[in-house]
Design a binder for these strands. Structure first.
Lengths: 337, 337
DNA sequence: TGATATTATGACACCGGTGTCAGATTAGGA
DNA sequence: TCCTAATCTGACACCGGTGTCATAATATCA
C-alpha cells in the first residue's frame, strides 16, 4: 500500500522519471512502444500524478477563485455549478470566495487571497464584474481574470454576459402589450451594473411604445426581499395605483406580491407583477412570477473555461460573448381589465 | 519584483532556510534575536510562504472537500458559509463537491476526487452524513472525515448535529397546543436521516398528547417543492380535511401554502401550516411559515474545525455535539377556531 | 557504407518548502 | 574555570513533479 509516485512508475517500467513525465503530458519524442509500456504501468499501479508537485514545478496551483457578493443563494449556486463544470473539465479546482464589495479593504482582502492561495486566475461575478478598482488592480497585478454578466466591455478581458437591457425591454413590453400603461419599476442595488441596464430597458420599452416616463413610479431597491417590501409599500399606496409593477429581480417581486396579498389585492386581476432572474421563488409562490431567465450556469462555465484555457497566454482578441435572456410568462401578469 | 521565497528571506536575513522555516512554524529553539530579525524581513519583503511547496514537503494539500446533494440552495450556502469560516481560520481551502448520492459510481467518483485533489479530509453533509457505504469507504481508506447533521452516531467519528427529532416534536406540540388534532405530515426524502427523525418527533408529540396516530394523514415527499405540491393535493382533498399540515421542510410547506391559496383556503384561518429549516422562503411568502431553525453554519463550522484540527492525529474520543434547534412562530399557524 | 539529421532517452538541477542530524554556541553546575 | 547539558543553527536530503541539456539510438540521404 505504498504511495505510487512518478518514481515508482519509472522504476517499475524501467524508464526514467522524465520519460514518464513525457507520457503524462502527452509530449512528443516518446516511442510508441515506450509510451504504451508506461501507460500500462499507470493502470497496473493505479497511478495519479500529484498536482501539488506538479504545481510546485510549474509555479501553478490549478486553482481558480470565484468572487461573489450576492444575496441570492440560487444565483450563487448557479454560478458555482457553471464554474465547477468548467473546472472539472479542465482539471482545475474552484475556490469560492464570498466577500463584500463595500467591505473594508476589499482589495487587500483579494490580494491576500491571491497571495496565500496562489490562485491561477479569478472569475468575477456581479457586482465585482464591473467594479473598476478591482478590475484595474487585477490588471496591474497581471492576475488573469474573467468577468461574468458585466455590462461594461473593456476590450482586453474575457467577458460572458447576457443582455439585461434587452430582457428588461422585453418584459416591460410584455406588460405594455397586456394594456398596462402605469408600470412601476423597482431598481436593484446601485453597485450592480445590471441595475442600470434593467432600468434602461424599462425606459426604452416605455419610450418605444409612446408611454411617458413617470419618475414617481420608480423606487430604489437593492435586490433584497426586504428592500422590495419597502418599495412595494410606497408603490401600492400610490393614488392612482399603478396597474403593474416590474421589479428588478424576483425577490423584490415576491415582496410586492406578499404585500399586495396582505392588502387584499388580487394578483394579477388587480395588479400585475413581473420580476427578473427566474429564481426558484418565482415558481414557488402563487401566482408564479413572470420573469426573465438568464443562462447563468452557461455564462459562468464559458467564462471559466476561457479563463483557464488562456492562463499564461495573453490573448490578442479575448473572448467576449453575449448570451440570450428569455421571457418566461407565468400567472402574475395578465391583461388589464 | 522578483518572487519572494524562503531562500530570499534567508539570505536577506543572513540565516539558513531552516531557521526561517522554524520561525514560520513557530517552532522552538530559535533565539529571540534571530526570530525577530527574520520576522522583520518577512514584513520588509512582504513574504507569504508557498502552501504548495509546503504541501509537497508535508504531503498535504491544505484542502478539505465538502460533499453535498441537496435541493435547497439556502442550505448549501449556509453549509458553505460555515465551512469557509472554519477553513479561513485554520488556513485551509475548501473544495465544494456537489454530487448525487444515488448517482452512478458515487464511491469511485469520491475516490477519484480524493486521489486527484489530494484532499486532507472531507465534510459530509446530509444525505451523505448517514450513508453507510460512503462512511465505511472513507474509514477503510483512512480519509479523515466529519459528519454534519447526522442522526446515527458512530462512536469513532467527528459529528455535529442538531436535534431533528426534538425540533419536530416541538413544532408538532406547538400545533397541538393551538388546538389541532388532525395534523397531516409530509415526509422528506428517504435518503436523509432527518426524514426519519422528524417523523419520529411528530409521532412522539402526538403520542405524548394522547392523539392517535393516523396513517392516512402521512404523505411521502422528498423535500422538493414539487413533491410538496403532490402531497398537498392529496392532503387538502381529504375529507374531513386536516386542520394543520406539518411539512418536513419549508419548500414543501410553501407548496402546501401555494395550493391552499389556490384552493381559496385561508391560512392560517382555515388551515395551519408548519415547515422545518427556516429557509429564506419561510419569510418570503405570506403568511410567513412557522418553522424550526437549525444552526447550520455553526454545525458545519464546528465540524470542519474539528476535522482540520485532528488531521493526522486520530482521536480517542472524537468530538460529537448536538446543538439546539429553535421553534420560530410566524403567521402560518394559529389556534383552531 | 558512412556522414548527418532526427528522434528518443536519461542525468541532473530545480521549484520552495520541511525533516534529520551533526556541529556550534550558550547556559548551568561543580 | 572547566565540563556537561541544553539550546541554536545550518548542511543536506527529500517531497514528486518539470525544464534543460547532453547523449544514445535510429532514420535519412548521398
Amino acid at each position: 500500500m505504498k504511495k505510487v509516485t512518478i518514481n515508482s512508475v519509472a522504476s517499475y517500467a524501467g524508464v526514467s522519471k522524465k520519460t514518464v513525465s513525457r507520457v503524462l503530458n502527452n509530449e512528443p519524442n516518446v516511442s510508441d512502444a515506450t509510451r504504451e509500456k508506461v501507460l500500462k504501468v499507470f493502470k497496473e499501479l493505479d497511478y495519479t500524478p500529484n498536482p501539488i508537485a506538479r504545481g510546485l514545478a510549474q509555479n501553478r496551483s490549478f486553482i481558480i477563485g470565484c468572487l461573489y457578493d450576492n444575496p441570492s443563494k440560487s444565483y450563487i449556486t448557479r454560478v458555482q455549478t457553471g464554474a465547477l463544470a468548467a473546472c472539472h473539465e479542465l482539471n482545475y479546482n474552484l475556490l469560492i470566495h464570498p466577500c463584500e464589495l463595500r467591505g473594508e479593504e476589499l482589495i487587500s482582502n483579494i490580494e491576500q487571497l491571491i497571495q496565500t492561495s496562489r490562485l491561477d486566475g479569478i472569475v468575477l461575478t456581479p457586482p465585482f464584474s464591473d467594479f473598476p478598482e478591482l478590475v484595474s488592480f487585477l490588471k496591474s497585478k497581471k492576475i488573469p481574470y474573467a468577468r461574468v454578466a458585466s455590462a461594461v466591455l473593456e476590450d482586453d478581458s474575457i467577458s460572458v454576459r447576457s443582455n439585461d437591457e434587452q430582457g428588461a425591454f422585453e418584459i416591460t413590453e410584455h406588460l405594455i402589450k397586456l394594456g398596462h400603461k402605469e408600470i412601476a419599476f423597482i431598481k436593484g442595488h446601485p453597485d450592480h451594473s445590471a441595475t442600470e441596464q434593467r432600468f434602461k430597458g424599462y425606459r426604452r420599452a416605455l419610450a418605444s411604445n409612446g408611454i411617458e416616463f413617470d419618475e414617481r413610479l420608480v423606487e430604489e431597491g437593492n435586490f433584497s426581499y426586504h428592500s422590495g417590501v419597502d418599495s412595494a409599500r410606497t408603490i401600492l399606496d400610490l393614488n392612482p395605483r399603478p396597474t403593474a409593477v416590474f421589479a428588478s429581480n424576483d425577490y423584490m417581486a415576491a415582496a410586492v406580491l406578499k404585500l399586495a396579498t396582505q392588502m387584499q389585492l388580487r394578483v394579477p386581476d388587480d395588479i400585475s407583477i413581473a420580476g427578473f432572474d427566474n429564481a426558484p421563488i418565482a415558481r414557488h409562490i402563487w401566482p408564479g412570477l413572470t420573469t426573465i431567465a438568464q443562462p447563468v450556469e452557461e455564462m459562468t462555465q464559458q467564462a471559466v473555461k476561457q479563463l483557464i484555457t488562456h492562463i499564461g497566454e495573453p490573448q490578442e482578441s479575448p473572448y467576449q460573448v453575449t448570451l440570450e435572456a428569455k421571457l418566461i410568462t407565468r400567472e402574475s401578469t395578465a391583461a388589464i381589465k
